[in-house]
Computed example of a mutant assay.
Amino acid sequence: MTTPHDPTDAKQGRQAAIVIALSGLLSIFAPALTRILGAAPRVEMLFYLISLAGFIWSLVVTWKLWQKTREK
């Protein structure tokens, strides 16, 4: 079954994919960034929270996209 592709859906999907990738990289490199910056451990936790927020945002966006494409 083929469906017409909506450019805004594609754009949202790309944005979600980029946010997932960047959130993953931030969570992987949070300890190194904290060490390089010479910051307190709470800054590392802030990086983890920012990463978690990115994952949750992309989960919500992809869920909405999935529900939208199921209606078509």
Rank of each mutant, 00 (worst) to 15 (best):
H5K: 10
L59F: 15
E71H: 10
P31K: 07
L22A: 10
F29M: 13
D6I: 02
L46I: 13
T69S: 14
G13D: 05
Q67K: 13
K72I: 11
A53K: 04
V43M: 11
P41Y: 02
Q12R: 15
A16Q: 04
T3S: 12
A53E: 08
F55W: 11
A10F: 05
L46M: 13
G38D: 03
T3P: 01
A32C: 06
V43P: 01
T2Q: 15
I20F: 07
I20N: 05
L46P: 01
S51P: 06
R42A: 14
F47G: 01
L46V: 11
S27F: 11
A21C: 08
L33P: 05
T62N: 02
A40K: 07
M1C: 08
A39P: 01
F29H: 12
M1W: 10
A40Y: 12
A39K: 06
T34Y: 00
R70M: 12
D9C: 03
S23F: 02
S23P: 01
T3W: 02
K11H: 14
L52Y: 06
K64G: 07
W66R: 15
D6K: 06
T8E: 06
I20Q: 07
K11Y: 08
A30N: 04
P31H: 06
R35C: 09
V19C: 04
A40E: 15
L49D: 09
A53H: 09
I56V: 14
D6W: 05
S27R: 07
I50K: 01
R42T: 12
R35E: 15
T62Q: 05
Q67H: 11
R35N: 12
F55L: 14
E44F: 00
V19Y: 02
G38C: 05
I20W: 07
A30R: 01
G38V: 01
Y48A: 08
R14E: 12
